[in-house]
Computed example of a mutant assay.
Amino acid sequence: MGILNLTPDSFSDGGRFQRPEQALKQASRMLDQGADILDLGAQSTRPGAEEIGPATELERLLPVLTAIRGSHPDALLSVDTFQAEVAEAALKAGADWINDVSGGRRDPAILRVVADAGCPYVLMHSRGDSRSMDRLTDYGDVVEDVCAELWRSTRVAQLEGVATSQLIWDPGLGFAKTHDQNLQLLRGLDRLRQEGFQLLVGPSRKRFIGEVLSEARPRARLWGTAAVCAEAIRAGTDVLRVHDVGPIVQTARMMDAIVRPPRRRE
């Protein structure tokens, strides 16, 4: 899953792809590099980000979504939003997936939108919002607590009509987790995979990688991201959400060859 941020304030590439022609060029590049899905986001969810509301989010999103859909009619397009109004409009404009960092907490009406559409829904673990999440890191056992909270959100989604087959779990690296808790979650991916849901992991360029590598520049955290992606594949992760598609596609193909060899025909 290639990340396409349409925002002026995302933590590592804010402002680079706001104009439709810039975004379309980047989308085409990521697809050429081997991205299976593009994830379009018009609301930054970095710590401290300002929430812009659905009207501004749609102003940023819809021209780009329409341009990409027109140029790449067969591409799988995901929209990163926690607003029901944005999700509904995006699906009508040609989006295929909804990726909700709040797992339905912020705008519960999004669950009915997803249920009615029958589309894949990435249900991510998080707490609070962009302004408060860094203060909400009190866990007993972070792996077990994240698993329990994902189940809680899953049951709410199911009650609203979202089918189990639509759900993809995301443990939410960097969202209401400390440096050590992010590493513990990565060590616990096997545990999360046991719950039977497809798993998405989004480590790309994140702060905890920078802390391990003593690297303050987000765009210089490629190889740390690749190492995390390799471990995620070993643990059975299905989708990797990344900025640097070309190198991570190579990483994924190599790891697949090692840990997921093709079955021999009988």
Rank of each mutant, 00 (worst) to 15 (best):
V143T: 12
H125W: 12
M133K: 09
M124Y: 05
D145H: 07
V142Q: 01
Y121V: 01
V156R: 15
V156N: 08
M124V: 09
V122P: 00
V142E: 03
M133E: 09
Q166D: 03
A163F: 08
T154E: 12
D170W: 15
A157R: 00
E160W: 07
P120W: 08
Y139D: 05
L123A: 01
R127N: 01
L159Q: 15
A157E: 05
V146M: 06
T137R: 07
R155C: 10
T154V: 11
S130V: 06
E149S: 09
W151K: 14
M133N: 08
R155P: 03
L150M: 02
L123Y: 06
H125G: 10
D145S: 05
M133A: 05
V162C: 09
C147L: 14
Q166P: 00
D129K: 03
V146W: 06
G140V: 11
S126L: 02
R155Q: 15
S132F: 10
E149T: 07
R152S: 14
D134S: 07
P171W: 01
G172I: 02
D141P: 03
R127E: 01
D170M: 13
V162K: 04
V122M: 11
S153R: 15
Y139T: 03
L123T: 01
M124C: 13
L150G: 06
D145Y: 03
D134P: 04
D138S: 15
G140R: 14
T137C: 14
T164R: 15
R127K: 10
T137I: 10
L136Q: 07
T164H: 12
G172W: 02
V122N: 07
R135M: 03
R155S: 13
S132V: 13
R152C: 09
R131Q: 11
T164P: 02
L136C: 04
I168Y: 08
G128N: 11
Q158I: 01
D138C: 10
A163Q: 14
E160P: 02
S126A: 14
S126F: 00
S165D: 15
A148W: 02
R131S: 06
V156G: 05
T137P: 00
A148H: 08
T137N: 02
P120L: 11
D145T: 07
R127V: 03
A163W: 03
S126H: 04
Q158E: 15
I168F: 09
E149D: 12
H125N: 13
V143E: 04
V156H: 14
P171A: 08
M124F: 07
A148I: 00
S153G: 14
D170Y: 15
V122S: 10
E144L: 11
L159P: 00
W151L: 13
L159F: 10
Y121T: 08
D145A: 06
P120G: 10
G161I: 04
Y121C: 04
A157F: 01
D138Y: 10
V156Q: 14
W169D: 04
M124A: 09
